[in-house]
Amino acid sequence: MEKLPMFQKLHHVCIVVRDIDKAVKYYESIGVGPWTDFPPLDAYELDGYDRDAFLKMRYKFANTDNAQLQLCQPGDGDTPQRRFLESRGEGVFHLGFSVESCDKAEEQAASVGLEVLARGRLDDRSGFTYFKTVNEGAGVTLEVRAPSTKATQGIKS
């Protein structure tokens, strides 16, 4: 099978945790950090998420030399991250790959039978898409993300 271009440029690894403050403290104790809060998530148009539950998630990120690490603490409500935490426990929820266009990546994914789990888009069509790969991909969801054309996102491209 040919390589899919959307899964070639690893951007980040996202770890779901029960207590984000405890996780940050641990990672900082072994030299990983500094950790930064994600910008507000309220600008995203969502599909596959309960909006209230989505907005209750807490995210932090730390940039390393070759990739970004993200921590996610799901809040109350139904999100893929909460379902993962409840069914599998803490661990790597997704691998995030950089793409120029999430919409194009979704078309490529559909051509090989991958289905969308959830997505979020900003008004410039940047954002993210999670694919339904957790059961087929050794317990890990694959994500694509396209950086915003606006300088307000603050997350390493």
Rank of each mutant, 00 (worst) to 15 (best):
A138V: 01
T129W: 07
T133C: 01
R121E: 03
Y130C: 01
G127R: 09
E2N: 03
A118V: 00
S98K: 14
M57Y: 00
P80E: 12
C72A: 08
D42Q: 05
F61K: 13
F54D: 10
S111A: 15
V92R: 00
D78T: 04
R18P: 02
K56P: 00
G137T: 07
F93V: 09
Y26N: 06
D37T: 01
L95F: 13
P74Q: 14
N63Q: 15
L69E: 13
R121A: 07
F97K: 01
G96K: 08
D21W: 01
K25G: 01
L41A: 08
K25T: 08
C14K: 08
V112T: 06
T152R: 08
K156H: 13
T152Q: 01
K60Q: 12
Q68F: 03
F131N: 08
A43R: 06
D21S: 09
T141N: 07
T141G: 10
W35F: 12
K22P: 01
P147R: 15
A53M: 13
F97S: 10
I15M: 12
R88L: 11
T141W: 06
R83N: 14
Q70L: 14
R88Q: 13
D19Y: 05
A138L: 10
I155S: 07
D65Q: 13
L117N: 00
G48F: 02
D52L: 11
D78M: 03
K104Y: 08
G137S: 04
A110W: 11
D124E: 06
Y59K: 08
L71K: 09
P74Y: 12
E143L: 07
P74V: 08
M6N: 02
D78Q: 13
D42H: 10
K9D: 14
R82M: 04
K132G: 01
S98F: 10
S29N: 00
E2P: 03
S111F: 04
V112L: 11
E106V: 09
V134E: 10
A23C: 04
P39V: 04
V13L: 12
Q68V: 15
V16T: 13
T129A: 14
R82I: 02
Q73W: 13
E107R: 03
P39M: 06
E45C: 03
D65M: 03
P5E: 05
K22Y: 02
H94P: 01
K150W: 03
S126H: 08
H11K: 11
D78N: 14
G154M: 09
R58S: 10
L10D: 05
T64I: 03
L85T: 04
V17D: 14
